[in-house]
Design a protein around this nucleic acid. Structure first.
Length: 383
DNA sequence: CGTTTTTGACCCGCGC
DNA sequence: GCGCGGGTCAAAAACG
């Protein structure tokens, strides 16, 4: 019977590991379990190796029982898996609804074109079935949940794509090479010397998919030629290699967060991430000129390294950046001479929470940083 | 020889 | 309407 106990223990550990990944126990490293399992399994194998004398029938019975039990546990495991999937789906759907609600709030709070927005939303409501409230959603059945989830995803994707169509993500990084290793294949299709910058601007197109709309511009900073500014525009219409996916996730997540959680001026906005502890002159009051002023541009400033802190945008003005440092592990830290508004604090909270609570975003940011630094040997800044 | 890069010409939007 | 500047095209050159 020791074998049965061992199997039970093993299954318990497996179940525990499955239900909560973060609390998963590496049973091979857990001394008590390791010892118990070790001795039990050993005795089981020894029992099985015993010559089939009087115990033959007993062993066969045991084997049968164990097989039955194994099947039961497998079923239970499947149930747990499906439950987890459902919970994940619920979570995603609720997240979508939150996003939509935030977007609607943003639209309704904007005094400009309020009537137009209402008309648009009415039109949208006529075109698409209205999304249920959270309570309704939670009370609906399994099939309804799936349908709602799909609808929510479609609506969200449409809204996001519309917002992102012209949105850009700019990455500032110190690099000897003018090309950032972002995992994608790019084809150069043009080069120009822009006004106010002696360094030429290179234009690249994504070469990985057929007619992929993604483009990027690469230009060295006029003030500091060691800084390379890479601006990405558009969404990939094909699968990406892991390295490129990390970057795409980062830029997409950054766009998503800011388009959903912030205001946008009529003349376009520029936001900035930075990973520096202190304000750099480049960040405090410099406007990174966008070739398309009507497009919102998010700037990931990776020109300075830091261990624990990351700087996030606060002021969302059309022409100036006034970021202040934000500790990802705590509350926003106020910088000298810069007073963030309540709205900005809220935005920072959203961003902070998003990164703190979303391991994938955190990982994507780390991957993006590592791809830019291009030095896998060095330890990455802890986010 | 196929692919990629270079570079001058062209297009288009915006401000005056 | 005109000029300016950013973005794109496409032929030629370079490269492997």
């Amino acid at each position: 019977m020791e074998g049965k106990i061992a199997l039970k223990k093993l299954l318990e550990v497996q179940e525990k590991a499955y239900v909560n990944d973060t609390d998963a126990i590496n049973w091979t490293e857990e001394p008590s379990i390791k010892n118990t399992l070790g001795s039990s399994l050993l005795s089981l194998s020894l029992n099985n190796l015993e010559p089939p004398q009087n115990h033959e029938q007993q062993n066969l019975n045991q084997l049968g029982l164990l097989q039955i039990e194994l099947e039961e546990v497998k079923k239970e495991n499947q149930n747990l898996r499906s439950m987890l999937n459902e919970i994940s789906e619920h979570y995603a759907a609720l997240q979508n609804q939150l996003l939509l609600a935030m977007q609607q709030k943003k639209l309704s709070s904007s005094p400009r074109n309020n009537e137009d927005m209402q008309k648009d939303s009415q039109q949208n409501n006529m075109e698409k079935p209205a999304l249920p409230s959270c309570r309704q959603f939670l009370n609906t059945g399994k099939i309804n949940n799936r349908v709602i989830l799909q609808e929510a995803k479609i609506v969200e994707e449409q809204a996001f794509e519309a917002s992102c169509k012209k949105a850009r993500v700019s990455v500032r990084a110190r690099s000897e090479s003018s090309l950032m290793g972002d995992g994608c294949q790019w084809r150069k299709y043009g080069q120009k010397i822009s006004k106010g910058n002696p360094c030429p601007r290179a234009y690249y197109r994504c070469n990985m998919g057929t007619a992929c709309p993604v483009r990027k511009q690469v230009q060295r900073c006029a003030e500091d030629e060691s800084v390379v500014i890479t601006t990405y525009e558009g969404n990939h219409n094909h699968s990406l290699p892991p390295a490129a996916r990390s970057m795409a996730c980062t830029t997409s997540a950054a766009l998503k967060m800011f388009l959903s959680g912030s205001t946008t001026s009529s003349h376009g906005s520029t936001y900035s991430y930075s990973n520096s502890d202190l304000f750099s002159p480049l960040c405090t009051s410099t406007y990174y000129p966008s070739a398309a002023p009507s497009c919102p541009t998010i700037t990931l400033d990776l020109t300075q390294t830091s261990k624990n802190n990351m700087k996030f945008p606060s002021a969302i003005s059309s022409n100036h950046l006034q970021p202040f440092p934000l500790s990802l592990h705590g509350q926003p830290q106020q910088s000298e001479g810069i007073l963030p508004s309540e709205k900005n604090l809220a935005l920072v909270d959203v961003v902070s929470a998003a990164i703190t609570n979303d391991p994938s975003l955190k990982a994507a940011l780390e991957a993006a940083v590592s791809s830019i630094i291009g030095d896998s040997q060095k330890s990455l800044p802890t986010l």
